[in-house]
């Protein structure tokens, strides 16, 4: 099945996963690209997005699988036509005739920007580094069966903390994104819980890249 790579930025980050699927279904229609439909009582255009992105999180590496009905259109044309039919903040970066199997999708790189309106306190970066070097950092996770506690450390592949200007700290991390998966915002939750004295005023989160088991870029 063909796959496309897209980014979700600006105000588009506030569009939910389900709304984004609808948005793409309509964009395909506007672009004159007919999608195949699912079978069943309520046939739906077949688009699926690999890893649902939390509302408010920016991404430069979203993957969407789709299936065109009958017609064969070059990937480059699909990209151009879709980009003319998409709203601000959602942009197709590339289109592939066939994507790798989703089950091989294993890691993702993320970047957290921690904002401190009154400046970054001394020792913040060091304390954070130390926190993520522990063997166990337990954070609550809301699951289908209520709140569960989980140790996030085994799901962090690597992580760096650096100060960026007077008022920002940036955390770059590579984390597991399938079986098990770590929501990058859990890193921020860990800071709030373990280092309440350096709780930021606001956190921005961005998904940067996705990888397979061998940590090769996943497409």
């Amino acid at each position: 099945m063909p796959r496309l790579l897209f980014e979700k930025k600006g105000n588009a980050v506030w569009i939910s996963h389900l709304d984004l699927m609808r948005l793409f279904q309509r964009a395909f229609k506007r672009a004159g690209l007919p999608l195949t439909h699912t079978q069943g009582f309520n046939p739906r255009p077949s688009v699926s997005i690999a890893l649902p992105l939390s509302v408010g999180v920016e991404s430069g590496c979203e993957l969407l699988d789709f299936d065109l009905d009958g017609v064969i259109i070059p990937c480059k044309d699909i990209m151009e036509r879709l980009n003319c039919a998409l709203t601000d903040g959602v942009r197709v970066l590339d289109v592939y005739e066939n994507g790798a199997k989703i089950k091989h999708l294993s890691y993702l790189d993320c970047c957290l920007t921690l904002e401190y309106d009154r400046g970054v306190a001394a020792g913040t970066v060091e304390n954070m580094k130390a926190l993520f070097c522990r063997d166990e950092v337990i954070v609550e996770k809301k699951g289908k069966n209520g709140i569960v506690e989980q140790n996030i450390i085994p799901m962090i592949r690597n992580l760096t903390v650096e100060q960026a200007g007077e008022k920002e700290v940036k955390i770059h991390a590579r984390v597991c994104c399938q079986n098990p998966s770590l929501n990058p915002m859990q890193l921020s939750a860990a800071i709030d819980k373990y280092l309440p004295e350096v709780k930021p005023d606001f956190v921005r989160c961005c998904r940067v890249e996705v990888y397979d088991e061998q940590e090769n870029v996943f497409r």
Partner: peptide, 18 residues
């Protein structure tokens, strides 16, 4: 932008639609 993550259905406050 700081308020939006704290409210339900934030997309209804941002505009930017087709």
């Amino acid at each position: 932008q700081r308020i939006l993550p704290t409210v339900q259905k934030p997309a209804r406050y941002t505009g930017g639609e087709w």
